[in-house]
């Protein structure tokens, strides 16, 4: 693989978006930001707002559309869909949040360390990141489920490990550029410690890039975790989670009862699209600055 080009690729994301001039508000960015904030809030308070208990079944009213009692209808066991969607918000949103926080933290540490040390350390770490980068996260998560079992933490850990090199590679190329700037040498001459230069100066300057890429990665982590749940390798029933709800509603699809798959699917798409576009817009703004 021509690695130089590959590393550049993710940086192209957001290039299509024409960056706004400084000081001009970007309505799309604000809109997506609000939706993302709303979804994060939903993860926090969603489980408290449920009108019905999660596992209260009502076979006589199974697979119904929206009604006064069940605002979004019921699933194939007659459970209230609104309640399950609200409760499902917590794992569905928390999982990508944990994955992104952990992989970004690890990735930034590895990237800055390699860039700062340079030389052979840098070459070895970069080569390892290049190899890890090509490993598909979904596949690792599926095999991890075979070895470590299903649940919340196994796919989260597997995806964290496979997302780390993605973040690290982008941050690494930015950190290398940063280390070559004259101010770093000036700091060294002024007698600042490596730790201080890295944390106070380099880290601060590459933080916006890391945040933009982490936002983009949030969208992918959300989709990947949803896919693992959809495959039945994530949280197990009767727990509610959006990806597994899309799966549980599949049998109903064939008889035309689309509510469970559709409502959960729409929420996943809404969340993924909002985080994706927010990340692109943030990346475009930074591209403007440098």
């Amino acid at each position: 693989m021509s690695l130089e080009q590959l590393t550049r690729l993710p940086l192209l994301a957001g290039r299509l978006v024409r960056p706004r001039r400084r000081g001009h508000a970007d309505p799309v960015l604000i809109g997506c930001g609000l939706i993302c904030a709303g979804l994060l809030a939903l993860a926090l308070i969603g489980p408290v707002l449920t009108p019905y208990p999660l596992d209260q079944t009502d076979i006589l009213n199974a697979s119904q559309g929206p009604s006064a009692e069940h605002l979004l209808g019921t699933d194939s066991l007659g459970r209230d869909l609104l309640s399950r969607l609200l409760a499902g918000a917590r794992p569905s949103i928390t999982a990508p949040a944990v994955i992104v926080l952990a992989s970004t933290t690890l990735g930034v540490i590895v990237a800055v360390f390699a860039a700062w040390r340079g030389g052979r350390v840098d070459r070895v770490i970069s080569r390892m990141l290049d190899v890890m980068f090509t490993v598909p996260g979904l596949l690792v998560a599926v095999i991890a489920a075979a070895i470590l079992g299903t649940g919340f933490w196994v796919p989260v850990a597997a995806l964290t490990v496979t997302y780390m090199p993605y973040i690290a590679r982008i941050v690494h190329s930015a950190a290398i550029r940063e280390c070559r700037l004259p101010y770093v040498e000036a700091c060294q001459l002024a007698g600042l410690s490596s730790w201080r230069i890295c944390t106070r100066h380099i880290l601060r300057n590459i933080a916006p890039l890391a945040v933009a890429q982490a936002t983009l990665a949030f969208a992918w982590a959300l989709m990947d975790f949803g896919a693992i749940s959809f495959l039945g390798l994530g949280l197990q029933p009767p727990a509610a989670e959006w990806g597994s709800m899309v799966n549980e509603g599949r049998a109903d699809l064939l008889t035309g009862a689309i509510w469970e798959s559709m409502t959960a699917g729409v929420l996943i798409v809404l969340a993924a699209v909002s985080f994706n576009i927010l990340g692109e817009r943030l990346a475009a703004r930074i591209g403007d600055g440098s």
Binding site: G226, A227, V246, N247, R250, I258, M262, V269, I277
Partner: peptide, 17 residues
């Protein structure tokens, strides 16, 4: 921007329906 954020399993369900 919307297209890249459409997960395969959701699109599958929509297309089947």
């Amino acid at each position: 921007g919307v297209g890249t954020a459409l997960p395969g399993f959701v699109v599958s369900s929509a297309l089947i329906s």
